[in-house]
Write a protein that binds this DNA or RNA. Structure first.
Length: 662
DNA sequence: CAGTGAGCGAGCTTCCGCTTGACTT
């Protein structure tokens, strides 16, 4: 009897089916132990160590202590038992840095003398059997890279969190605030957008739109009057003034706009230019975890709900592994998908060559893309509700990724009134729909209407004209999906952690999700204000990318882990943390010179024109308008809430808004 | 003599990443 240990129970069950009797396949169910955490009882033999709470002895060559998680003790017991009956034990955890680490931790806990490690890239009978025939030893360089990552995250998190708490004036440790390599960088991205919005000055601009009485009708927009280009919302910068390259643009007064509309109505226009450009809409890539979480926002799923629903589909064997950063499809998947497509649409929807998609950021590519395992048609699965909707999304996106791009033509025309007005219109025509036959365009952009066939010099009638008024818009707040995409792009966070990053930011009171838009709270603004001044390297979004490069060098045996930690921690961040002040930061409110956010006793205060008010934790930055500032200073309610809440005396119940994701 | 404040020490929390269910908003 041989024993094979993997991470996921569902995977264990499947592999057991391939191997049959003679093999026992068990799951570790993820990591089994970690540095000591809060609420964990420290064994007697470690209690005297002064650094045991941290779990790392910085002065002692970064020696670590690991404890088995409370809920994994039974698993370790069972695995030990299984080891006794086994002739051979193979560690088949995932083929990436964390998986190698899990294998090593298992070997330690199970007391394996010469641990045997096997890896495979896909779960097929041949791949598993080939892997089993070629065991190797544990790659200790890769384990060291993982441990460096773990240690650095612990040191940064435990080192900086107390500073943030002090700066926010928090004395009660139970309401302690937090900072970390991932959460703080994510919060900075959100805060940057929030600042841009607060400082944004909207500009309003007039325009003229006309209806052309061809068959079919179409619309055109006035773009030049005489020799001057007409300003549009895009001509303005975030300060509400014309951009440098738009200084000469003409701001139409409403009288000018009305006059132009009057002249154009029932006039005759001449086509002066017709230009056509080929247009290609790319078929989507197969789904990664982050891509699925973004795509599922169309179904109004949160990242957490998507993860939970996908997990259930995975456990039913309907889809492949769900936490992946690779968009690659196996040859088997391509073959199965193409068979379905030939049946549904015929061979002409298949491109001549199958596209291969490259992974992004610091992808580790331990698994293939998320896809249907057997390509069972959605209605044949017996699923319903959320599970059916998500399965259908995965099914259709995977098939679409194997189809041709959509092709068409974009036509732009210029029209002249002969009286100094130049107008423009554009239209698109899709000639080969390709993947669009299966999947609606996810960009959801307004489709340009199609234009009639037009010839240069042709005369066409303008049958109506109206004055329009448009406003320049501030950059939109992040949605969950957009933030996850932004994090993935710079390599921050991992597929297994995206939903929990959002959960942490909300549970800490830094971020509120209102109708899908992520708002940074005043507390979050003060926290980022502090971090960006005192500990800029921690909130730097490129910190992780540099860390990944160094971890790769550790994994490649070119850099010693202790050397790395000395450079980055002992001679770097540890010094910054030791020197950082703990005074509450004064955060300016863009758009209101003199208005300052600060924090005292965990409460955010707003000072303006010599007065100070305590902000209710639900007051958001968008409510800091001129009118509301005055109300807040007078202690009046904003948006139906009290600006300053009465002191809760005696009660120990947390007043923090509960924003769990469930 | 009662109330206040400084100083001290004990106890608590904080990070990220890998897996599933258990369990209250």
């Amino acid at each position: 009897m041989n024993l094979l240990i993997v991470e996921s129970p569902a995977k264990a069950k499947k592999i057991q089916g391939f191997l049959g009797s003679g093999w026992t396949v068990r799951a570790s169910v993820g990591h089994v132990r970690d540095l000591p955490g809060s609420g964990q009882t420290i064994p007697e033999k470690y209690r005297a160590l002064p650094w045991i709470n941290l779990g790392v002895d910085v002065e002692g060559n970064y020696r670590t202590v690991y404890l088995v998680y409370e809920d994994k003790k039974k698993i370790i017991r069972d695995l030990k038992h299984a080891c006794k009956d086994a002739d051979e034990v193979l560690l088949a955890t995932d083929p990436d840095r964390e998986g190698e680490s899990i294998a090593w931790h298992l070997a330690q806990e199970l007391g394996l003398k010469a641990p045997k490690r096997v890896t495979y890239q896909e779960i097929t009978e041949t791949a598993i059997k080939k892997a089993i025939a070629n065991p190797r030893s544990i790659d200790m360089n890769l384990v060291a890279a993982q441990e460096s990552r773990r240690i650095l995250d612990r040191l940064v998190g435990y080192g900086s969190s107390p500073l943030v708490s002090k700066a926010l004036g928090t004395s009660d440790k139970r309401r302690s605030h937090s900072a970390g390599r991932v959460q703080s960088a994510a919060l900075m991205m959100l805060a940057g957008r929030e600042h841009a919005r607060m400082g944004f000055a909207s500009a309003s601009v007039n325009g003229v739109k006309v209806r052309i009485g061809t068959a079919p009708e179409f619309q055109a927009t006035l773009i030049r009057l005489g020799t001057q280009t007409i300003a549009t919302p895009a001509s303005f910068g975030p300060d509400g003034a014309l951009k440098a390259d738009a200084q000469e643009h003409l701001l139409l007064s409403s009288a000018q706009a009305k006059e132009a509309a009057g002249i154009l109505t029932n006039s005759s226009l001449t086509v002066v230019q017709v230009s056509k450009k080929p247009l290609v809409r790319r078929a989507p890539a197969p789904l990664t975890t982050s891509a699925l979480q973004q795509a599922a926002s169309k179904l109004k799923f949160s990242a957490k709900k998507t993860a939970d629903t996908a997990q259930r589909l995975y456990e039913q064997g309907l889809i492949t592994y769900i936490r992946t950063d690779s968009p690659a499809l196996s040859d088997e998947a391509v073959r199965l998908g193409q068979n379905v497509l030939r049946e549904l649409f015929g061979a002409q929807v298949l491109p001549e060559q199958v596209r291969r998609h490259a992974a992004k950021g610091n992808a580790q590519e331990a698994h293939e893309a998320i896809r249907p395992t057997e390509f069972t048609a959605p209605e044949q699965t017996g699923l319903e509700g959320d599970e059916l909707a998500l399965y259908r999304l995965i099914y259709e996106t995977t098939l679409a990724s194997l189809m041709k791009d959509a092709a068409g033509e974009r036509t732009s025309v210029l029209l002249d009134s002969g009286k100094g007005h130049l107008l423009a219109a554009a239209g698109t025509v899709i000639t080969d729909p390709g993947y669009l036959q299966l999947l609606k365009d996810e960009e959801d952009g307004e489709e340009d209407a199609s234009l009639p066939a037009l010839q240069k010099q042709q005369s066409i009638p303008c049958v109506g004209a109206e004055v329009t008024s448009a406003q320049s818009k501030p950059p939109a707040r992040f949605t969950e999906g957009k933030l996850i995409a932004a994090l993935e792009k710079v390599g921050i966070g991992r597929p297994s952690t995206y939903p929990s990053i959002l959960g942490t930011l909300q549970n800490r009171g830094y971020v509120v999700n209102e109708k899908g838009a992520l708002h940074v709270t005043p507390l979050g603004l003060v926290a980022t204000g502090y971090l960006s001044v005192q500990l800029p390297s921690i909130v730097d979004r490129h910190f992780t990318a540099r860390m990944e490069e160094d971890l790769d060098r550790i994994a490649g045996g070119e850099l010693r882990a202790t050397t790395y930690l000395d450079t980055v921690w002992k001679n770097g961040l540890a010094l910054s943390i030791a020197q950082a002040g703990v005074a509450a930061p004064q955060v300016a409110v863009p758009g209101f010179p003199g208005a300052v956010l600060s924090s005292k006793n965990s409460e955010v205060t707003l000072s303006y024109q010599g007065r100070t008010a305590i902000l209710h934790e639900k007051v958001l930055s968008e409510e800091l308008t001129e009118k509301n500032l005055e109300r807040l200073m007078n202690g009046q309610a904003v948006r139906g809430q009290r600006a300053s809440r009465p002191k809760t005396t005696g009660s120990k119940s947390s007043t923090r808004k509960n924003t769990s994701l469930a």
